[in-house]
Design a protein around this nucleic acid. Structure first.
Lengths: 117, 117
DNA sequence: GCAATATTTAACTCAATAGATAACTAAATG
DNA sequence: CATTTAGTTATCTATTGAGTTAAATATTGC
């Protein structure tokens, strides 16, 4: 069901991870492909320690994964992991599915609200 | 109603608003239609003040709007507003669009990484 | 007008989180 | 090997933000 090892930690963890502009910047940059940690820090104007912490958050939430650079083991390359985004997408789709249903069931809600009042 | 000026406050605000389980619970409940503030508080096990604060956050981010109950002006009815969800959906789609592209452009990244090393 | 109801605002406390600097680990390079 | 390079961890501080109780506002009903 879930890719081996990288279990998405749930919607809450995903949304908390994405609710930070720097981390969302990381995601946006990784859209174009894997990148090194230092590269990300430089591109987003973050100090290396700050970026390292952001990457740790993203990693623990399963939004990114880390590998060593094939030609330089001290360089760490990060890439996006699809599972948490897919989970978020499903939730969002379920919410958005309602803009049509909401009109349909409007009468029922009026009834319910009046029953409660 | 969303006053014409209350544009969705951006992805950051939307994601911060959704990065809370109670507020996400509100969204899930409002999927089924508009509901009263006190109803939401009761359903989610939150005290009225806590719920009021959560609703204020959601309102200021443009995720929900508030009206008075037609038959009882002291009752406030909340409903979902689609715009911020649509914005989030577009961003998410852009991110997810990459699972295919990422494979395509893989060779280019290898090249770029080797150029940097 | 007076009490009850629905909800919000205020003031406070507490925990979680982000940023900065410094110290540390590991790997490439001379 | 000593040094530079890449990145992470440690520690501290400051800010944000969520919950609580009490008070305030507004509306309905007697």
């Amino acid at each position: 069901m879930t890719p081996a090892g990288a279990a998405p930690a749930g919607l809450d963890a995903t949304l908390r991870a994405l609710a930070d502009p720097t981390r969302r910047g990381v995601v946006d940059l990784l859209r174009d492909g894997p990148r090194r940690a230092g590269d990300l820090a430089l591109a987003l104007g973050a100090t290396p320690p700050a970026m390292s912490r952001h990457l740790r958050v993203l990693r623990r939430r399963g939004l990114v994964s880390e590998r060593s650079h094939p030609d330089a083991a001290r360089v760490r390359v990060y890439r996006l992991e699809p599972a948490p985004f897919a989970e978020l997408g499903r939730w969002l789709a379920a919410v958005e599915a309602l803009w049509s249903e909401q009109l349909e069931s409007f009468a029922a809600h009026v009834q319910r609200r009046e029953g409660q009042t």
